[in-house]
Design a protein around this nucleic acid. Structure first.
Lengths: 198, 198
DNA sequence: TGCACCATACCAACTAGTCGGTATGGTGGA
DNA sequence: TCCACCATACCGACTAGTTGGTATGGTGCA
């Protein structure tokens, strides 16, 4: 595997460091060191730290979009299978260090929602729109299983994202991925109870 | 209402600003300005920014402990009523600005779990132990309703916290408390389905 | 008078961003 | 083939501004 080009290395370093220390606390020199470069190179590729952040947003969007598009849960036979498959998939990828499976978007939105709206805004949209990729299957499952609800498919889609994001926080709070996994188990049970009634 | 003393004002300002901008991005001068004081006063009460953070942790713990101890949900007749009452209470307090009802502990744990373990550690414990205050009622409800489960009362207690924390992130992502409220609705439905079967 | 409390001025360290310069490789014309 | 020319990528020392923390002195109350 060839070493990625410098710009990509800087972006990957950013994703990693921000997830570990937050945006404000990651210095551009940290990013340079992590990428094995110097500030000269950094400011050749990005005109400011904020510019880096915006590029990292695009980098993250591209990365996650492709990652979930290729995920196996889309192959599920019916809408509910795909929905449960999504939850299983989110549980399956909870491996390695917390900085690896934790959500860059969630971190930024939590930390910088008010101080850096230009950066956190697109990431907020990213979380919401990623969640809504499940909406069609939820609607289909509601019809298929005759679920009469006082809630909307959209609200359930966002609830799933809330559990995912909350799981990450609990994982940090408990120091392990197990907390996030258990929360996804509860979410899965909720979905089964809701659609299959048991 | 008498104006709180300076130290308390500094601590309250810290809680507010950290929830809005994160820990690293809130400067001590911001805290002073928010409290209507200057650095002289600040460093009279705290010997460093980290010292402030540690004091803010204690301040937060004292505040939340009292706040939830006095909450009405403890008056519920049975364990399930108290559990559902807790969820209702968490939903009821989602008023005002996001900086007011959002969780200081969750913010710090998300941002500083690795960079400032001395500060985030106690707050992580705080989230977990607060969650576990529900554990006894969950266990009692499991017995009362004859719930046979492959999950533990502790895991459900932590799941509830995950939904609460995740709801805050979704509230920031969508720009309103409604997302958090809807997530709590789904959580409530899960609890009812689990214990009452419908 | 003494001390808790607070303001102003200041310092030292740190960090985002700048800038002059080097290395490498591509292109086109003689 | 060779060389002038140029663009891209990169380095590392330096600058300017920020920020946590200090020093000093004033004010009001016991």
């Amino acid at each position: 595997m060839a070493k990625p080009d410098s710009k990509t290395r800087l972006l990957d370093a950013t994703l990693k460091l921000v997830r570990a220390k937050g945006y404000a606390a990651t210095r551009v020199e940290d990013v340079c060191a992590e990428a094995g470069l110097t500030k000269g190179s950094f400011f050749h590729h990005f005109k400011s730290k904020d510019d880096l952040a915006q590029a990292a947003v695009a980098h993250w969007e591209a990365h996650t979009t492709g990652f979930f598009a290729e995920a196996p849960y889309h192959a599920g036979a019916g809408p509910l299978e795909r929905l449960l498959g999504y939850v299983d998939f989110r549980k399956a990828i909870l491996t390695g260090d917390l900085t690896e499976f934790t959500c860059f978007a969630g971190n930024i939105v939590q930390e910088a929602w008010r101080s850096h709206p230009q950066i956190s805004g697109p990431l907020a949209d990213n979380i919401v729109s990623h969640g809504k990729t499940l909406q069609a299957d939820i609607e289909a499952a509601m019809i298929q299983y005759g679920v009469k609800a006082d809630w909307t498919a959209e609200s359930l889609a966002l609830h799933i994202q809330a559990v995912v994001q909350g799981g990450f926080i609990m994982a940090k709070a408990t120091g392990g991925a197990a907390a996030a996994a258990q929360s996804l188990d509860h979410l899965r049970r909720y979905l089964e109870l809701t659609f299959k009634g048991e």
